[in-house]
Write a protein that binds this DNA or RNA. Structure first.
Lengths: 174, 174
DNA sequence: ACGGGCATGTAACTGGTTACATGATTCA
DNA sequence: TGAATCATGTAACCAGTTACATGCCCGT
């Protein structure tokens, strides 16, 4: 579980580990399977050690198990803000960007539509760059690879359109 | 640098580190930038420690710098074969699959067209699965994410077509 | 010969992943 | 009650990455 993702989930509100995990799975749906349960706690403890997160015993009910409530520190909030502003496209998967939008909207940190727009500009830039490189490498093996990269970028741009429709629909309904 | 990639480059013939790096960069072209030079040696030494690779001093010319020639062991060849046969689609990037085809063709380990075909079947299977899941999650945030996954899978399938054209062109010319 | 760049190699850091431990909750 | 499961937490492992060390090569 990437640290940024956990931080972003925490940006909405201080939570227990299982709450974070539940929200994560709800946001990702079936695409979010295959992640180890204990992973989130590893990440949380490392974030705490790095000072991005504080951890308090939830002393609400005396006989409850000793759960810990995690909350962002100032440094943590800063890192989340930086992450949201970072427009380098997440190669590995779309989930990261998707969670970024959700976190930005839930924590009222930024306007999802603005993020989508900035991301589109960045993606278009890369697309042009890849297309230019593909021209130069035509009919070589590297050119073939570039063709694939171009196709993926175009698919991602189409997905951004879908994101825009989704989030603008949510916005006008609020 | 993923270990499998280095092993695959080594499958063609025993080589020095810089030969591997050069071949890698030629195969990837501009898409292969941004990798640290020393990375390959880290990987090679770890592979040697794991017994997948042997390392001999190149005692060809006596006064040359003491380069090391790396070669696959039987276990290493087995791992490469397993990697080539593994049809789980490489999420992170297309480069891995691309290198797989190159390695298979160069080492005469498998027919690239057969790999492409098997990969297409697997991709189609995942596409159907994602589309079915997307139906169930319509208009939820998870559904949006699934839509993106579908678009990427379709793009990858189109790229496979391009791969097929490329490799079948190479084949008939040989 | 000397300085910069390059091929090579090594050590340490980081972060994701796995495996397992512990106590609580639920259900037969 | 006792087994199964779950929420939580910890320790260790592994691989990718970075930073740096070393020694050769080449141009001036």
């Amino acid at each position: 579980m990437q640290q940024e993702v956990v931080l972003a989930m925490l940006a909405k509100e201080p939570s227990h580990g299982y709450q974070l995990r539940a929200r994560l799975q709800q946001a990702l749906g079936p695409a979010g399977d295959g992640m180890n349960a204990g992973q989130i706690y590893v990440t949380l403890s490392r974030l705490a050690k790095a000072g991005l997160v504080t951890c308090e015993e939830s002393s609400g009910l005396p006989d409850r198990p000793d759960r810990k409530v995690y909350a962002l520190t100032a440094a943590g909030q800063q890192r989340v803000a930086g992450w949201i502003g970072d427009m380098s496209w997440p190669g590995p998967g779309l989930a990261e960007f998707h969670l970024k939008l959700i976190a930005a909207a839930a924590g009222r940190l930024a306007d999802p539509l603005a993020i989508i727009d900035a991301q589109r500009r960045e993606l278009l830039r890369r697309l042009r760059e890849a297309q230019r490189a593909a021209m130069a490498e035509e009919h070589s093996s590297a050119g073939l690879l570039l063709e694939g990269i171009v196709l993926r970028l175009q698919a991602d741009l189409h997905w951004l359109e879908a994101c825009e429709r989704y989030w603008s629909g949510l916005k006008e309904r609020s």
